[in-house]
């Protein structure tokens, strides 16, 4: 906990007000509506509605397919989070170390983040295309017949790799900014104390990066869970079929595509509760180990 010096005055409230206000109006009001809708079955155009109690929740939780999707979501999020963090950290540390071309590397590595998501997805899909994808061709050289959209594991792998590819630059930028903000005095001291760069990284740099790292961990989990549905959609070409999908994609399918407001709301409430529990757990278990000063 921060040593608090400033007492209360009007200032903190004034500073908090805009954010809280926006959050209440544009998040909690709509979210409350989603919670309400989860207890109803209603025509989206407002033609009629029936209060169904917890039936929507029951329907979701007793669906075999939902369990299958949940399992995939778990592995998907785990892999995407781990690899996008690990790759970005490695690159950020290296970009922070090298002398020549540091600037160019930085720019080049941030570059991809700028590409428009629909095209990023399109490129990803074309890379893995089952008929003309270069990656499929490479796999064929090794005697493996890769078939996105047909083979469950191939499709899952493509989704995971494209998702990682899109997220690495974000993590890279944040890690680099975290590294750059490590005070010079600390670096110098570390340089003298620890000769081995490997040890120096784990004993000095990594703990200093922990606040950023923890932030990124949470952000990446939410990315993997929530923001990847565009990638998933483009990989399966808007036809889910028997392909793997995540929980949020299912929310999108049922709510957005299928106009089932009640069912999709129930799914998002369940999802939100799960992720909230997960983050509380992380704050309890991991943040405790993060030293802030």
């Amino acid at each position: 906990m921060k040593r608090v010096i400033f007492g209360s005055s009007w200032l903190p409230y004034a500073f908090l007000a805009p954010q809280i206000l926006i959050v209440i109006i544009f998040f909690y009001l709509p979210a409350a509506e989603a919670v309400r809708a989860s207890f109803y079955l209603e025509n989206p155009f407002g033609g009629g509605s029936t209060f169904v109690g917890i039936d929507n929740y029951k329907d979701v939780l007793t669906d075999d397919n939902y369990v299958r999707v949940a399992k995939f979501t778990f592995w998907f999020s785990l892999l995407v989070t781990f690899f996008s963090l690990a790759i970005a950290l490695l690159l950020a540390v290296k970009a922070d170390t090298v002398l020549r071309g540091a600037k160019s590397y930085r720019i080049l590595l941030m570059w991809v983040y700028a590409i428009a998501p629909p095209v990023a997805g399109l490129i990803g899909v074309l890379m893995f295309d089952q008929h003309v994808g270069p990656i499929t061709d490479v796999a064929a050289l090794f005697g493996y017949k890769m078939q996105i959209g047909v083979n469950y594991n191939d499709t899952a792998a493509a989704m995971i790799i494209i998702s990682i590819w899109k997220q690495v630059p974000v993590n890279f930028i944040f890690f680099l900014s975290g590294l750059q903000s490590i005070p010079k005095a600390v670096r110098e001291a570390a340089q003298i104390d620890c000769r081995s760069s490997w040890r120096r990284f784990w004993t000095v740099t990594f703990p200093m990066l922990a606040p950023t790292g923890f932030f990124l961990l949470i952000i990446n989990i939410t990315y993997a869970l929530f923001d990847t549905f565009a990638v998933i959609d483009v990989v399966m070409k808007n036809e889910p079929g028997s392909n793997p999908m995540t929980l949020v994609y299912k929310v999108y399918l049922d709510g957005f595509r299928g106009s089932d407001l009640g069912g999709s709301s129930a799914q998002s409430v369940i999802l939100m509760a799960l992720v909230l529990l997960l983050t509380i757990f992380q704050f309890r278990m991991i943040e405790r180990r993060v030293h802030y000063t």
């Binding site: 089952q130 008929h131 996105i148 959209g149 047909v150 070409k237 079929g241 392909n243």
Partner: peptide, 16 residues
Amino acid sequence: GWYGAGWSDNQAPFEK
């Protein structure tokens, strides 16, 4: 031949 649920994935081998 079945090339998944995607429309174009099934059309492509005909074009080829």
